[in-house]
Amino acid sequence: MHHKEIGGYLELEHFCGSEYHEGAVALNAARSCLLYLLEAHGVQSIWIPMYLCDSVGESCKAAGVAIRTYDVTKDFKPDYHTINLAAGDYLYLVDYYGQLAQDDVLEARDFCDGKLILDEVQAFFRLPLPGIDTLYCCRKFFGVPDGGYLYTNARLDHTLPQAKSTQHALHLLGRMDDGANAHYGEYSASEHLFAGEHMSAMSEITHNLLRGIDYKAVAESRLRNFLFVHDRLGEKNELMPVARPGAFMYPLLVRDASPIRSAMQQRKIYVPTLWPGATTLEGMSGRLSRDILPLPIDQRYGEEDMEYMCDMVEELLKRGRR
């Protein structure tokens, strides 16, 4: 029997391209990718970095998984001296700003005897290594309502419902008309909704939008902006970030970043704190959370925008040293 609607008003256009992670398990969010792995592998205990968003720990708790935490080093690697793996423990490895080398990932895999979950939320364009469970987030790189990708050999024994993402699209449409401030409330409400959503398959809206993206152009634009910012601010950066195609943000580590972040926000340059829950921590995790300025370098911007932002950062850094 034919159930497809015919006629009436038009919906969004249907795009005919390919998704970048075609063939991966496509879910409604990166946290669903984690929940999928926890359930499929029957994970009982996991080590996660202290320098991390709250949603990872909340997801683990919701799944009844015991959590242990470790610190990270200044070059974004696990501080293995703070990890004491027990039999069966999993390790959650975050590729902050896409800065881990392949050898770093393989070292972590060997350290935990293959019980590794690799978080590539900040490295969408990095392809997975064979045999390593790897998850990605779409919203961190593109203007889509939701979406996460997962590479794994594990499978659930039940079918997931498909997500509906209309409620997560309002702020995306509104920002194009009115700017970010006018629709920040809708964005915040959308973020809160994710916390209560169940694991689902990626929505058709998100699938469709992801088929309409020029991924090559996006990756090149992000790399070009990263290189421009590094050329201007690299000498002022305590880090030595590696430029990779499709870079997430430019991580600028300085002393006392908070007033600079606030001053930039007043001038409508929005630099987040990654992550607010980690700013009070001692050790390197707290320092990285407080004092990294994740500068936006994404595909919306060109050289003129990067020059304006770098001029402002240099001005604020000089002012802070007086």
Rank of each mutant, 00 (worst) to 15 (best):
G234P: 03
G234L: 14
G234Q: 10
G234S: 09
E235G: 09
E235W: 02
K236L: 10
N237F: 04
N237Y: 01
N237I: 08
N237P: 07
N237C: 08
E238L: 07
E238P: 00
L239N: 04
L239M: 09
L239Y: 00
M240N: 12
P241T: 03
P241W: 04
P241Q: 01
V242E: 06
V242Q: 06
V242M: 03
V242N: 09
V242P: 00
V242K: 14
V242Y: 14
V242L: 05
A243W: 11
A243I: 11
R244A: 08
R244H: 11
R244P: 01
R244D: 03
R244Q: 10
R244W: 12
P245Y: 01
P245C: 05
G246W: 00
G246V: 13
G246T: 09
A247L: 10
A247N: 12
A247I: 10
A247S: 14
A247W: 09
F248G: 01
F248S: 12
F248Q: 07
M249C: 14
M249Y: 08
Y250I: 11
Y250W: 07
Y250V: 02
P251H: 01
P251R: 03
P251F: 07
P251Q: 05
P251D: 00
L252I: 11
L252W: 00
L252H: 09
L253A: 04
V254L: 13
V254G: 04
V254K: 13
R255S: 10
R255T: 11
R255A: 11
D256I: 05
D256C: 15
A257P: 01
A257G: 12
A257V: 03
S258C: 08
S258N: 11
S258P: 02
S258F: 05
S258I: 02
S258A: 10
P259R: 06
P259M: 05
P259D: 05
P259A: 12
P259W: 06
I260G: 00
I260Q: 08
I260R: 04
I260N: 00
R261S: 04
R261Q: 08
S262L: 12
S262D: 15
A263P: 08
A263W: 02
A263Y: 02
A263V: 01
A263M: 08
M264K: 07
M264Q: 03
M264L: 15
Q265F: 06
Q265N: 10
Q266L: 14
R267C: 03
R267T: 02
K268S: 09
K268A: 15
K268F: 09
K268R: 14
K268C: 04
I269H: 11
I269Y: 02
I269D: 03
I269P: 02
Y270S: 09
Y270E: 14
Y270R: 14
V271F: 08
V271A: 01
V271I: 15
P272F: 13
P272V: 07
T273F: 06
T273S: 01
T273P: 03
L274D: 02
L274V: 11
L274I: 15
W275K: 00
W275D: 02
W275G: 04
W275V: 00
P276W: 08
P276Q: 05
G277N: 13
G277Y: 02
G277R: 13
G277F: 01
G277L: 03
G277V: 05
